[in-house]
Amino acid sequence: MTAQGGLRYVYAVCRPFAAALQTQLSGVAGVPPGLLRHHGLVAVVSTVPEGDFAEEPLRDHLEDLDWLAATARAHQGVIDALTTVTTPLPLRLATVFRDDSGVRTMMEAREADFLHTLDRLEGRVEWGVKLYADPPEQPPPPAGRPATGREYLRQRRTDTRAHEENRRAAEEFARTLHERLSGRAEACRLHPPQNATLSGVPGQNLLNAAYLVSRADSEEFVELVDRTKDEAPAMRVELTGPWAAYSFTEPVTEPTTEPTTEPVTGPPAPVRAGEQR
């Protein structure tokens, strides 16, 4: 497979697999993905226009949020399809090479790392769990002003104490939930809490974690998460997945400025559709 009039976009590396990908699957730039075999590995690739993915136009496109979102969705669609038939090792969004030779050179150089990571992730998927504390309901304002300054200070102390107790209870629930889920997972990663202003999701994000779980144990893991959803008032548990194990994959390519036999890499592996880190 050779890039005719375009660059080689690489979605993921995996071991050879027999199952067919979805017949209607299209990737980045609307091009269906193909397979490029090298020794005991397979790169999942498609051809993308150089006018969009060479260094300079790619840099401009990465400032275009609509273009970036569409590319990330197409990239993720291929990764999701791969996850149903094999264990993929996703590469960064917008990893491109000049031609197939460049892809093979990369696979050759990182073959031992790829095989080691694929062995570690084989038969496992990632589940994401977020815990939010919903904003407390505001009590109705008092009928009149406090009779004295002392009464005002007493009311303030009462409100502050209640707020602190609620905060401690929420943090304890988050800690306990993480411990319980970690006990059912093979590995876990804690991501920084989301900023509600940036994410647009209401409530305080107390837990933003990823859990590596075997496919065989995933049903039990999901049931455990479901059982926690009504355990604490004013708490909201959100489960996403199963995903390819993004959070448990070390970076496999380094940024460079020349799209020859080296990759041109954009941002880290994309945020999955419907998710924000």
Rank of each mutant, 00 (worst) to 15 (best):
T2H: 15
A3N: 09
G5S: 10
G6H: 02
L7D: 04
R8A: 12
R15Y: 03
R15A: 09
P16Y: 00
P16W: 06
F17G: 10
A18K: 02
A20N: 14
Q22C: 02
L25W: 10
S26F: 05
P33I: 01
L35P: 08
R37L: 11
H38N: 09
L41T: 13
T47L: 04
F53P: 04
E56W: 13
P57H: 09
P57Y: 06
P57W: 09
L58H: 02
L62C: 07
H75Q: 05
I79D: 03
T86E: 00
P90C: 02
F97W: 01
G102A: 01
M106K: 05
F114Y: 11
G123M: 06
W127A: 09
Y132T: 01
A133V: 00
D134Y: 08
D134M: 15
P142N: 00
A143L: 15
E165N: 01
A169Q: 13
A174P: 09
L177T: 08
E179M: 10
E179I: 09
L181M: 07
R184D: 13
R184I: 05
N195I: 04
S199P: 05
G200C: 05
V201R: 13
V201Y: 07
G203C: 08
Q204M: 05
L206Q: 07
Y211C: 07
L212E: 11
Y246D: 08
E254N: 12
T260M: 02
P263K: 01
R272Q: 15
E275M: 11
R277I: 11
